[in-house]
Amino acid sequence: MDAMRLIGATRHALAQAGTVQDIVAEAWQAHALAEAIGGHLTVYGPVPARAEARGLGEAGSRARAALYHPALRHPAVRSGCIRAVQLSEVHDLRRTLIALAELLGDAGIALVGVASGTEEEALYWSCVESIDAADECRDRVRGILRHLEVRERGGAA
């Protein structure tokens, strides 16, 4: 499935999430998608951007791992319904990266709400760690976009 469709589905699900459990689960899905897109671009992306893509995948993995909280795992995640595993193509790389950055920003904002509203210290720190790793994902996305700009201008990256 194209990355843009997966990003759209995840943005919609995050916007509809009403409980802490649902918000955390959808942020987890967003980070899994960052990891998957990073992995895809590491193999199929522009050669000069592959190191940034690898970093994107690793940061997505850390962001996702930080949200592991057994009491909060969403039934869809427990049953293996992970949207990111459906990623098969990235048609419009620039548009996909911009949309991914927006999704990660939305997930971060949602996690700030969870962190500020919880009295459970472990959940608070899980959200903070995940937000931090997601910020690194966004930095990596910006790096890939810079490589694309250089390539489009005909320069070396």
Rank of each mutant, 00 (worst) to 15 (best):
I23T: 13
Q16T: 01
I7M: 09
V20M: 02
I7P: 03
L14C: 04
H31M: 06
A36D: 10
V20D: 03
A13Q: 11
D22T: 08
E26V: 10
I37H: 06
A15C: 01
A32W: 04
V20S: 02
E35R: 15
A32M: 09
Q16Y: 02
M4V: 01
H12Y: 04
R5C: 02
L14K: 11
Q16V: 07
A30C: 14
E35A: 09
W28H: 12
A34T: 10
E26M: 13
R11V: 04
T10Y: 05
A25N: 10
Q21R: 14
L14H: 06
R11F: 03
I37K: 07
H31S: 14
T19K: 10
R5T: 15
A30T: 04
T19R: 13
V24Q: 03
A36Y: 01
A25R: 12
V20I: 08
M4Y: 07
V20N: 02
Q21T: 14
A30V: 09
A25C: 13
A25V: 09
T19E: 07
I37V: 13
H12I: 06
Q21F: 02
E35G: 06
A27G: 06
H12L: 06
R11N: 07
A25H: 10
A34V: 11
T19I: 08
L6F: 05
A27D: 02
V20W: 01
M4W: 01
L6E: 08
I7R: 06
A9K: 11
A34W: 06
A27Y: 02
L6R: 04
A9S: 01
A32V: 00
A34H: 09
A9L: 08
R11I: 02
A25L: 10
L33A: 14
H12S: 07
A25G: 15
R11D: 03
A15N: 12
A32P: 00
A17H: 01
L6I: 08
E26H: 07
A15V: 08
A36N: 08
I37S: 04
I23M: 15
L6Y: 04
L33V: 03
G18W: 01
D22V: 05
M4H: 07
A15P: 00
I23A: 15
A13K: 12
A15K: 14
A17S: 05
A27W: 00
E35L: 12
V20H: 00
A34R: 01
